[in-house]
Write a protein that binds this DNA or RNA. Structure first.
Lengths: 249, 249
DNA sequence: GAAATAGTGTCTTTAAGACAGTATGTG
DNA sequence: CACATACTGTCTTAAAGACACTATTTC
């Protein structure tokens, strides 16, 4: 330990020029009616890339962990806290930001659509966060950049390498969907199996077999019935389920 | 564009203190005889963490991409080039390095055992890279830190958060093993199906069903027979296969 | 010939897809 | 009652595990 401390005093961390380090957060939600993926983007007011659409992001504090920085960005720029968030990938091409060298540690977060709608459409919403519909022009887990359109279908040009970051986020959740319980993050506490399937279909971008989806979820014990049923759905009301916290397995 | 350039001139990137950014490389190989995973580690000559064992690493150049930095570290510190390498995860706990704030973008690389043996045991090997056997004390894809022992079974204490980085690397390749062609990276060009299975078993840390493994590899068209057979194996010689580059699918 | 692993064929089990048919709300 | 979706049951198909049996090399 003495050795460690002596060396620490002699260490000159400023010998090398250092990049800036930022976090960018891909906040995703699913609109079960429109059966599509949505992400939160903000229109850039200033150059560079003025009027293009960017992910919420910010610099990492010198004494702040990466996870803390991502949670702070989500809180300050979108007004959300306590949602699922996980590191995605780190983007570090030397010229991805024209101003200076910025390495961005990207995160992805998932939130229930109704919770986000409330936050994003509120008048007091921070930093002009908007919901953009995502169009994923590639199947499966091929990967690639993703396009964004607004509610009216008009394309939203993306800033910097954010189309690539969004593509990586979609690729990641597609891959994790069938072995990690991430579909539940996009639904309220109680949901029907149809809701859950629509979420999966929106993420995967393709239809799923209704029968085997139901069987898979029930056989794996991922969901448990609540005993309640949905009301006012215009047809036979489905049983509502909740996520089974399978820490005992 | 004029707006962009004007803003660029006014931009003051030095307003915030910046962390150092490094890459650390988990270079893994499989010893088919010993049926275990090995990683390249180097003993630290100086404080901090003197005499503990660390992953090969280095700072990212200010005009260097992250991928380039990882390839350079592999070349300069281990003497390897042209092998499979991919970004793993970024570690950024504020005190993971006692000297200063260092954010480390971890990579993992895979190489055939014989190729690595040649490099690492050569007298002119750079920076004292050694092969350490890994002991993974958790099953499946639970995740967690990993222990390292030398060839004689003596434990090698790991520096900084490198046990955690190694754990993340093992978790990642376990997860990717059955949908990405990464087993082939750890074998010579021609190999028997038994060799491939032993590699998979070493990575997963458990035995696999011989028959269904063979069927799975052949049915998927992942391997094609070369027509050659192994010699001098003390029993019926197996057909040798090579990886089928399935870009046509 | 003994030992050891390669390789083939078949049976069983399990999960997924297809689909028929019944159940039960709302309009 | 019509409609829409929930839910149940059964048949088929595909993949994995188990296992018996044959093949072929070295010692």
């Amino acid at each position: 330990m003495n050795d460690d401390l002596r060396f620490l005093a002699e260490y000159d961390a400023s010998r090398y020029p250092r990049p800036s380090v930022a976090v960018d957060v891909v906040l995703l939600t699913v609109d079960a009616d429109a059966r599509g993926l949505w992400a939160v983007l903000a229109r850039r007011d200033d150059p560079p890339q003025q009027e293009r659409w960017a992910l919420p992001g910010g610099f990492v504090g010198i004494d702040e962990s990466l996870d803390d920085a991502a949670a702070r960005v989500l809180r300050e720029k979108v007004g959300l806290a306590g949602v699922f968030i996980e590191q995605l990938y780190t983007f570090g091409a030397p010229n991805r930001d024209p101003r200076t060298r910025v390495i961005s540690v990207a995160y992805y977060a998932l939130v229930e659509a109704t919770g986000l709608e409330r936050v994003v459409t509120a008048d007091e919403r921070p930093a002009g966060a908007h919901l953009a519909r995502l169009h994923v022009p590639w199947p499966g887990e091929t990967g690639g950049p993703v396009e964004a359109v607004d509610g009216a279908g008009l394309p939203l040009p993306l800033a910097f390498d954010h189309a690539e970051i969004l593509g990586m986020a979609v690729k990641r959740i597609r891959g994790k969907l069938d072995y990690a319980p991430i579909g539940f993050e996009l639904l309220p506490d109680a949901f029907s199996l149809r809701d859950l399937r629509l979420v999966h279909e929106a993420i995967l971008g393709r239809a799923l077999n209704k029968d085997s989806f139901r069987r898979r979820m029930l056989d794996r014990g991922l969901v448990v019935p609540t005993g309640a049923r949905a009301t006012g759905v215009g047809h036979r009301p489905p049983e509502l389920y909740r996520f089974a916290n399978r820490s005992a397995t």
